[in-house]
Design a protein around this nucleic acid. Structure first.
Lengths: 138, 138
DNA sequence: ATAAATGATTGTATCATACAACTATATGAA
DNA sequence: TTCATATAGTTGTATGATACAATCATTTAT
């Protein structure tokens, strides 16, 4: 294994995280709104606990964030019929519209950012990123 | 341009940031210690303003972080002989040792993480990451 | 010579987060 | 069946990273 490749990856990952984690908003929505709506619209209505597991955040954090989303009307709370303690959050139409717009905005930005890359490079980068993320999970 | 490649990149970047920005420490040092020591050891002694520009953080934030580093003995403040307002921070031997150890720890972790990747994949991923970071800068 | 600009520090506010205490409900064991 | 324990969620509180504003000291420009 080439040590210098790992060093490069290490360094560039740190730089990337440093830059991107400064963005308070993603496509015009704040981070938690964007990530929660994305998750809920992708993987169906789930509750506070499942979201906390997914994001590796404390349930108290998710509880506040979902309360905020509900107050904005982006999600609706559906009581779990089989468990009186919990409920699921379903993205509302308004929420779907918001997250759709945000995604469009991000794609537009990325289109510019990657405009000098070849199709092959973009495709490969996406694959490798996905692979890294799957690797983390194990 | 393939829209689906951009969508994949967008999604996987969000996932990556979400995961990695949760790490409070990098190789046993807290984030700001690791990034500041790396920067200072790489690009020579510079002052608060230059660090703030580099990291796109407020000078007040950097000021506090460098004060903390100095208190820990990881950097030494060298007054700028040509400008009485500013000083440069030089990494001490102790600081060099600390950041060296931290880097070793990270490389060890990455060695495990990327163990199933081919040399070509690691090399390519590093290149593409670097390219993305350079693109951001413009 | 004085006004404006600049590097840095410190006070204060905000935000995201974790932990702890608590409530309500569900599950399992005697 | 009942009671102890576990679980889902909420709320109070503390912390850490950050930005902005005020300020100080020094430098630069008019």
């Amino acid at each position: 294994m080439e040590e210098k490749d790992l060093e490069l990856i290490d360094y560039e990952l740190v730089v990337l995280i440093r830059r991107t984690s400064l963005d308070k908003e993603l496509g015009g929505l704040d981070r938690s709104t964007y990530t929660l709506l994305t998750q809920l619209s992708k993987n169906g209505p789930i509750g506070v606990k499942a979201l906390a597991d997914e994001f590796r955040l404390d349930v108290s954090t998710i509880s506040r964030q979902t309360t905020a989303l509900e107050a904005k009307g982006y999600v609706q709370r559906l009581p779990d019929p089989t468990d009186g303690r919990s409920s699921y959050f379903q993205v509302t139409e308004e929420g779907m519209r918001k997250v759709g717009d945000a995604k469009k905005a991000r794609i537009a930005r990325h289109t510019k950012l990657f405009k000098d890359w070849s199709d092959e490079e973009r495709q490969r980068f996406g694959e490798l990123l996905a692979r890294l993320n799957r690797t983390f999970i194990e």
